[in-house]
Design a binder for these strands. Structure first.
Length: 266
DNA sequence: GCTGCATGATGAA
DNA sequence: TCATCCTGCAGCA
């Protein structure tokens, strides 16, 4: 589930549920028992996100840092909350709301200096476009320094923070770029186009609570099939929506990538 | 009921 | 490049 738009949604949802409230914290699974005890009963001051990272600030406690990784999940409940599964790493709750976190890659308490180090190694986040350091120029400078294929660069969180495997495939299709082109060989107009499209698509993802890159939102009934919402992701051997040619798939930077060889020629 | 895969990232080799 | 972390679920029998 988690590319940047989803993390951004979690941040705003958790802000709405818990900000300025005293929050109960437990770790049914036990692996975060000490951390949960440390923040239990504290007041949540703020929730920030950068790319795929979440930071929860408390009154008189360290910052909670969460990264969902590939299969981490939050579930939230308003009136009724079921018992957490035994694998639930962290439960945050008040009288009126409860959130269950399972399967995160990272769930830890950190000092401000550690947060600084994490943020320092992250590239600009298109969902923070406009705020300090998150702009097209920083992104362009990051790309210029890399000879790796653009398809690898867009997954590198130090280059741009928040894109994942779906957005990388879709952005390369929509900008007509061959995933194998070296990042530093892409001309500046194209680089600006990639950034602008990232901003646009992530914002759209936040609005729809899903990654949608096709022009028209399909009818509700067919939205369960993710392939109806995108141009190339997981559409290998299906016809390209634009030219009718066959969508191809290969491996790039350790992940599967899909592209249209005709629309994305060098 | 079981298998294998998934929108991620790291550390060892 | 590969194994590993760790959970849920689609797809299959």
């Amino acid at each position: 589930m988690p590319e940047g738009h989803a993390i951004h949604l979690y941040a705003s949802e958790h802000r709405k549920l818990f900000e300025q409230q005293s929050v109960t914290a437990t770790s049914p699974q036990g692996r975060f028992a000490a951390g949960a005890a440390r923040i239990n009963g504290r007041t949540l001051l703020a929730v920030d996100s950068h790319g795929k990272h979440l930071f929860y600030r408390w009154r008189r406690a360290e910052t909670l840092h969460v990264h969902l990784g590939l299969y981490g999940k939050f579930r939230s409940f308003r009136s009724y909350a079921p018992a957490p599964t035994p694998a639930t790493r962290l439960v945050l709750s008040t009288d009126t709301a409860e959130v269950h976190l399972a399967g995160p890659t990272v769930c830890e308490l950190i000092e401000p200096s550690a947060e600084d180090r994490i943020r320092a190694r992250l590239g600009p986040d298109p969902l923070q476009a406009g705020s300090a350091g998150s702009d097209a120029a920083t992104f362009a400078a990051n790309l210029r320094r890399r000879r790796i294929p653009i398809g690898a660069a867009l997954l590198d969180q130090a280059v741009i923070a928040g894109l994942g495997n779906i957005y990388r495939a879709e952005i390369l299709f929509l900008t007509g770029l061959d995933p194998q082109i070296p990042a530093n060989e892409i001309d500046q107009d194209k680089v600006a186009e990639i950034w602008d499209l990232s901003v646009k698509l992530l914002r759209r993802g936040v609005r729809h609570r899903a990654i949608v890159t096709v022009k028209r939102m399909p009818p509700r009934a067919s939205r369960r099939d993710r392939r109806k919402l995108v141009h190339v992701y997981q559409r290998d051997r299906l016809p390209c929506r634009r030219c009718g040619g066959q969508i191809m798939a290969t491996e790039l930077a350790g992940r599967r990538i899909w592209w249209c060889p005709a629309c994305q020629a060098r």
